[in-house]
Nucleic acid binder design. Structure first.
Lengths: 319, 319
DNA sequence: GTTGCGATTGTTATCGATATCATCGATGGT
DNA sequence: ACCATCGATGATATCGATAACAATCGCAAC
């Protein structure tokens, strides 16, 4: 910038002003300087500006990436969150610094203006750890009773209850829940499910399965039939589990939805073209990402923001 | 840091040295100062350090995120690339700055020490645009004849040829290729397929389908049967296409693999538990990410690096 | 006793931008 | 003719770290 100033015969500060379109400099000189800068291939040194402005225009997104059969951020749907976040942030001139929990010790995270926590890594212990950075922070997940931070999440409780209503409406009397209630989000689904059923005097059966796979869904049905438990409806907390369940049921000679009704979760693209087309609960991940981003930005700008819960929608199809 | 120095009764530079574990400071004072810094909750200002060191320890990863029915980086498998990149970079003290092509104008990208381009956005025009930033750059994709930049990609040509060999070995004489050869990567698969078959005097049929969906795969088979084209093998360039093809074939009374053999691509987790278990070409995305990261790091450190191609593996299952 | 060297610590300049306050000429009202 | 005001530009200090070089001390060698 000093070089530019010398060439143009003005002072550094005038260059700075011209390049940031400040109305303080004469319109003509401003344009002249901008042209010159462009012509000379001048590149702003972002680090210097960050230092001076004490802002990096960067938000760190911390995800859980550990590959496993458990649910990870590498699943496609949670990643749509990232898409939403990225879109909203860049629209506001911010960048996304992607980090895992392990990598979060890296220097760059400290330079961020704000923090977004994604994935089940965002349990209380992890949350507290990042809280200490003293940065504006927003968490994706199930809102706890008394968290000090802002939480955005889709309404898992409602997800559970709409499925319950759906079963009730179909006259089902012996519903089963398949999934891993250790995940706070899934725990909420279970709660919503149980409570809504209780209003009709029905108590569902819980089949705990930790993996979100087709095989796991099949296995759940096998054990159910083996134990000769009567059931006529299955709420699987992921689409893969649901598909596995349907396959196992068919193999064992039970019809879906004739004998058993099945509903999945996430409404993955495959759900609609599954045979039979799978009913599933859809959550708007993209919108979730947008919201997360808006809230951190608000916090960064010293505005207020509140926790928020996004509604879900039951896509009723053939099962 | 100045505050720390005052409190500790030493100079700033000693603090700086102590905190970076420099052997220049006495071991005891070093430890004393480190403890003090920790106790006072001192946080290094990364922007200042970046400015001084002229390094941000950050690599920008530019992906194509535009949601569409076309293939995007939001597909789960390409994202494993990101996982590999992230892991390798953080292991070396670098951070990942995630950006879309649109967002790449944002300031922070200019501060990056290097660039990784992912997704079909990395066509020549886009590549050239980022080349102008003058940063070390590595691209994921199919290596072109004469690119000036470093390319890492999986061996799509080999992917095509192993499938061809497989069909030949099974005695198939009328193979079909389903996919969108506009993607450079898929074009390579097609080339490998065609060439390997040509060695046996066989010329495959190309059914062009742009979407990577189940429906698209079904549709391809329908049109094939409608036109009464004889065929006994299908190479689909994605697993979803392959699954759609199998379903359509079964519905039309053709058995897989009895009448028609089908092979997919990517070996998604579902492939193995599909009915019948789907044969598919697997590429090691994780390793690809690791390589991409290693190469940028090499370039950043003024070492040399070369383009590289990763082998693929045909998982032979029931189809 | 002095010179020299190694181990520590300090002084000053620097990275590249921007905020604050100062400057300067022109304009205009009285 | 004089002072106030405004528009445009500049001088300097500053953000918080680190590099290069200087300084100090103790101790050993001659």
């Amino acid at each position: 910038m000093a070089d530019l100033a010398r060439v143009a015969g003005v002072s550094k500060i005038t260059i700075s002003r011209a390049l940031s379109d400040s109305p303080l400099v004469n319109k003509e000189t401003r344009e002249r300087l901008q042209a010159l800068a462009h012509q000379l291939g001048y590149k702003l040194n972002v680090s210097a500006r960050n230092l001076r402005l004490r802002r990096s225009h960067t938000v760190a997104v911390i995800v859980e990436m550990k590959p496993s059969n458990d649910r990870t951020m590498l699943d496609p749907y949670p990643l749509v969150l990232l898409g939403g976040i990225s879109q909203e942030l860049t629209a506001n001139g911010y960048s996304v610094l992607l980090t895992t929990r392990q990598g979060a010790t890296a220097a760059a995270v400290q330079a961020a203006d704000g923090l977004i926590l994604l994935g089940q890594g965002s349990r209380q212990d992890a949350v507290r750890r990042f809280d200490k950075l003293g940065l504006p922070m927003v968490v994706w997940g199930a809102p706890g009773e008394r968290d000090e931070h802002i939480v955005v999440g889709s309404d898992n409780r409602q997800g559970g209850s709409v499925v319950a209503e759906h079963f009730i409406h179909q006259g089902r009397r012996h519903p089963v829940f398949v999934g891993n209630p250790n995940h706070p989000e899934i725990f909420e689904r279970l709660n919503g499910f149980v409570d809504a059923l209780a209003a009709h005097g029905i108590k569902p059966l819980l089949i705990r399965r930790d993996e979100f796979t087709l095989a796991s869904g099949m296995d759940a049905m096998h054990s159910l039939v083996e134990r000769q438990v009567p059931f006529d409806a299955v709420f699987a907390c992921s689409d893969l589990l649901a598909m596995g369940a349907i396959r196992a049921l068919n193999e064992m000679g039970r019809s879906v939805p004739g004998d058993v009704s099945v509903v999945g979760y996430d409404d993955m693209p495959l759900a609609a073209s599954f045979l039979p087309p799978l009913s599933s609960v859809r959550q708007d991940w993209q919108e979730g990402g947008t919201l997360l981003a808006r809230k951190v930005l608000a916090l960064i700008n010293d505005e207020t923001a509140q926790s928020e819960t996004l509604p879900v929608e039951l896509m009723v199809r053939a099962t």
